[in-house]
Design a protein around this nucleic acid. Sequence first.
RNA 1: GGUGAGGUGGAUGAGUGGCUGAAAUCAACGGUUUGCUAAACCGUCGUAGGGCCUUAAAGCUCUACCGAGGGUUCGAAUCCCUCCCUCACCGCCA
Length: 422
Amino acid sequence: MLQLAVLRNNTELVRERLAVKNFAEISLVDDIISLDDERKKLTFQFDETKAKINATSKEIGMLMGKGQKEEAETKKKDVENLKNNLSPIQQQLDSVEKQLNDLLVRLPNLPSEKVPLGKTPADNEMVRTGGSKPELPPQAVPHWDLAKKLDLIDFELGNKITGSGFPVYKNKGAKLQRALIQYFLDYNTAAGYMEYMPPHMVNAASAYGTGQLPDKEGQMYHATEDDFYLIPTAEVPVTNIYRDEILKEADLPIKMTAYTPCFRREAGSYGKDVRGLNRLHQFDKVEIVQLAHPSKSYEALEEMVEHVEKLIQSLGLPYRILRLCGGDMSFTSALTYDFEVYSAAQDKWLEVSSVSNFEAFQANRMKIRFKDEKGKPQLVHSLNGSSLALPRILACLLENNQTENGILLPPSLQPYFGGEMI
RNA sequence: GGUGAGGUGGAUGAGUGGCUGAAAUCAACGGUUUGCUAAACCGUCGUAGGGCCUUAAAGCUCUACCGAGGGUUCGAAUCCCUCCCUCACCGCCA
């Protein structure tokens, strides 16, 4: 959530930046500011009245102590009157604060200066590409055929047990998943990320903190009996580790990594895009999260991009890095880089990582702060990225490395998998 | 799931109606001193939102917050209700 102070002090800038995100309700900014004016006015009235009540109550106490009962009774009348004045103010104040908050959570994060203009994925900016597309043998097939042929994944079995989008990995397919997770985690921890195994369900406060709530309930599975949400990404539980904490400046940056399954309802997806591993309701992902000093968060973002890039390179996959345009960014992000790998048999680019700086947007919701050199609490910046999401990596590994004798794994993975070929 | 005991500032922990936004100890931070990464002493030490003042910072002042939300009362950390959580024992169980 954006900070009120930012809205008030840089109103024009906020409007201009929201336009870059193609945000339709820019008039909300003015509504919010006038509600905040209202809030200040009512707060003043409330505090003044309450101060009088408090002072008078204290006098009553002293009068009672001295046995001056009648004077105390008079004062009680005074308090009663003041309280009658107070209650409408309080009601208005509560109502204004609620309205203010309801509007404030509807404003998306401001895109950074670097965000390209645009509305659709076609407007994303290509940052760079790497690797080279493989020469596939003539009989090459897409990963869903390979998975079947090599008995690695059973999609139909997942349908039976749960439903579509819940594949069953088996045999060497299951082992490869485990190898990838292990490899990714080792790679991340070697770069200073502390490993966590967080809960796979979160409460509403956590989902709110990272921006999944309100308004995006429908994208998460919800265990209604206990009001828990299945996590759509490890970002949610991991970033919330530091919710409501005040850190020391020297503690920054905090770097965390976690493997979790991710659960996404993804209503409205269909057709070829959801074939095989392209889009699932449950998938595995290793995430990296950083809490950074505001002045260093863009350095951290670049560092994370490089980190992920090297990981993809180590898998030998052709990739490209995109800087998302205003219209394609998430609600909470200030700057996002998407990583796509080339799926040779499908002749398609598949998103495997999204690395974002949220600046203070999430931290403001979660109240993650640090004390600066003056001892004043300040919001941290939060960042995260996939390092990496498994299914599409797996799809590319299978498709791009298929040979007549099976799948030749990249050398980086061989020790984790315990073999060269599948 | 049952029964019982609890939830107070970074930690421990006192506080059962006004003198408590909160003792004390520890930790942390700043400093003094002792010829050394120890000890002693002094000081600082919750968060948020208003108002005054200021270019700003600082300062002064008010309000709210003692798990969350309601209630009783002139006055609530303290009494009552609901919920959440923790601990102990029992039950169930990988």
